[in-house]
């Protein structure tokens, strides 16, 4: 893996100063503790993955590589494939980020560069409190507040207008249940919004005042300062904040189970019901007998989710590196 984590820009921390002298027992013990804790995290994830892989092995054996792409999921016939949940997981997470990142950036920009001083604390706190709302509450709220609005107003309106258009129309068709992939993505977006916004705000605030002041001194507008000074200075941490959000979006379970509609078929429409890996595991796990192919398939899905997380994180780091170099 590339050496991307250590920033080469003026930012935070290049090589740490190391003590040559006086590295006594205290240092040895502390360093050991830190290293041991790090190793524990490694072992923990390793154990989870191994456990899931071993659990999913019967499903991989039964269905072969086709398990990953097959869109079949028939508990009665005992035929399982991961295609639909993988599609749903990636689609909802990406949609959620597309919806959340601009809003999160807007909030962070407002809080750091625009809001009067008296407003920053309370508004910032309120946004962070949104992150504190438990996911099951998002699920209940989503189901009882967002879904009726989607079913009654937003979806019928979009289906009758955009849904009639050629090509993109097929993205917005079908009966307006109010639930479905788009609603799930919307809830996910609201859930990850405060994570991304709070991180962006925190890192924007870390930009030394002199940089911004000199830019303002040259007559820059606030937007220009943000675009030309703050963003370049903080982009790594900004992407880190987005990753934090993406992580939550990929693995979010309970809120999604309320609104996704659990359908094991790929519908072209974003308003159609779907599935994510996490939601299908949560919804089906209770009715999966020990040693059954279904349980094994769910564990295999969990394993694949880890693979997806790996891929997404690796990709984002690679992107980050090319941006740094470029």
């Amino acid at each position: 893996m590339a050496q991307v984590a250590v920033p080469e820009t003026l930012e935070a921390a290049p090589a740490r100063p190391t003590t040559r002298k006086g590295s006594g027992t205290g240092d040895t013990i502390f360093a050991f503790l830190c290293r041991a804790a790090a190793a524990l995290v490694l072992v923990l994830l390793g154990a989870i993955i191994v456990e899931l892989f071993l659990g999913g092995l019967p499903a991989f054996k039964a269905f072969g590589a086709a398990f990953v792409t097959s869109t079949e999921w028939d508990p009665v016939q005992e035929i399982y494939g991961a295609g639909v949940p993988i599609y749903g997981t990636i689609l909802t997470a990406i949609l959620a980020l597309l919806l959340a990142v601009p809003v999160a950036f807007g909030i962070a920009f407002f809080l750091t560069e625009m809001a009067p001083d008296w407003m920053r604390g309370p508004v910032g706190t309120a946004i962070e409190l949104l992150a504190a709302v438990p996911s099951i509450i998002f699920g209940m709220w989503g189901f009882f507040v967002i879904v009726p609005v989607m079913a009654g107003t937003i979806q019928p309106a979009i289906i009758d207008t955009i849904g009639e258009l050629p090509l993109i129309g097929s993205l917005f068709q079908g009966p307006p249940f109010g639930t479905g992939l788009f609603t799930a993505a919307l809830i996910l977006a609201i859930m990850v919004l405060p994570f991304i916004a709070a991180t962006m705000r925190d890192v924007f605030l870390q930009v030394p005042g002199v940089y911004k002041e000199s830019a303002y001194g040259l007559g820059s507008t606030r937007w220009e300062v943000m675009r030309k000074v703050v963003l370049p200075y903080t982009r790594i941490s900004v992407v880190g904040g987005i990753m934090l959000g993406l992580g939550r979006a990929l693995g979010e379970t309970m809120a999604v189970t309320f609104v996704i509609g659990n359908a094991n078929r790929i519908t072209p429409s974003l308003f159609g019901p779907g599935n994510t890996i996490a939601s299908i595991v949560a919804l089906e796990f209770g009715e999966s007998g020990a040693g059954s192919l279904k349980l094994s398939s769910l564990l295999a899905l969990g394993f694949l989710l880890f693979v997806i997380s790996f891929a997404v994180l690796a990709l984002s780091r690679w992107l980050l590196r090319s941006r740094l170099k470029g």
Binding site: W73, D74, V76, F143, V147, P175, T257, G261, A263, N264
Partner: peptide
């Protein structure tokens, strides 16, 4: 306990099914 539904949408629990039917 779960089957391959050919059409429609799912909702969680009795409350979910009733709520979705009420909405739709």
């Amino acid at each position: 306990t779960s089957v391959k539904w050919a059409t429609g949408a799912g909702a969680r629990g009795n409350e979910g099914v009733a709520g979705t039917v009420r909405n739709t």
